[in-house]
């Protein structure tokens, strides 16, 4: 039920916000779903740890499109997190390019990279990464401070069904509640790209479904691009496209014409 409330509320908000979105760089991404949004071209990533060289990603070429729900699937150590870090501008590839609007992220200076993380990307983590010392509402407000035109944190908290827990600290919230706060925190900056690192990894299946519904609503109602990395094959059923990784390589790309809603997927 919570998910349905959220669904309609996010829809309302998206309507309101679409008229407000005058930021030039953001408005560029709202229409053309066929054009690649972020691209990876022959990307490899090596980690040198003393005498050992670990090849986390090998020759990855990948396009992420507007309004797409993309699931990157792979076992532990397959390079999922490295891929997400590269998409999010948190790391640079050893070889190849990560392109945003045709520009290589490697060419971005510190200031531009900060802008990219701030305006373009919203992160959701497996362990929520909430600030223990801030209440649910304050955690969202802290992210809202970063952008000139944020969404209303109180509205967002209401949208994720936590209006009555605004004054609770993370330690007073359940895992599902904390993840909902984390999603609201990622959303408050109104970024076009949401990157989720095992968002349901620490949750039971019932709560996990509610979180996935929220994420799907972000795509369907607000037109966001959502990239979820997970080792849970069930989640792949709700993706527009599934990319399977193994040992740092893309082994399979599947497009799904009729993805299942989270309520119907087999966990």
């Amino acid at each position: 039920m919570t998910a349905n409330i959220c669904h309609s509320a996010l829809k309302d908000m998206a309507l309101r916000e679409s008229t407000k979105c005058d930021d030039q760089s953001k408005s560029m991404h709202t229409d053309d779903t066929t054009a690649p949004f972020v691209q990876m071209r022959n990307v490899s990533k090596l980690f040198v740890m003393g005498d050992v060289v670990v090849e986390a990603l090998r020759d990855i070429t990948l396009d992420v499109y507007h309004r797409e729900f993309l699931v990157v699937l792979g076992p532990s150590g397959s390079g999922k997190s490295t891929l997400l870090n590269l998409l999010g501008g948190l790391d640079t590839p050893t070889e190849g390019q990560v392109l945003f609007e045709g520009r290589d992220l490697a060419e971005f200076d510190r200031r531009e990279l900060t802008w990219y993380r701030r305006e373009i990307v919203g992160f959701v983590f497996q362990f929520y990464n909430l600030v223990a010392n801030l209440t649910a509402l304050e955690n969202i407000m802290l992210a809202a401070d970063l952008v000139s035109d944020p969404l209303d944190p109180v509205d967002l908290l209401e949208q994720v069904g936590l209006a009555d827990r605004a004054d609770s600290f993370p330690a007073q919230l359940s895992g599902g509640e904390q993840q909902r706060v984390a999603i609201a925190r990622a959303m408050v900056k109104n970024p076009p790209l949401i990157l989720c690192d095992e968002p349901t990894g620490a949750l039971d299946d019932m709560t996990g479904r509610q979180i996935l519904r929220l994420l799907l609503n972000l795509k369907e109602d607000m037109g966001k691009t959502v990239v979820v990395i997970t080792h849970n094959t069930a989640i792949a059923q709700m993706a527009d496209r599934v990319i399977r990784l193994r040992s740092g390589r893309i082994v399979e790309v599947t497009e799904q014409a009729s993805p299942l809603p989270p309520e119907k997927i087999q966990w």
Partner: peptide, 13 residues
């Protein structure tokens, strides 16, 4: 550390 790293990821300089 993790908390501050989250800020960095969020877009804090």
């Amino acid at each position: 550390r993790r908390e501050l790293a989250t800020f960095y990821v969020m877009g804090y300089t």
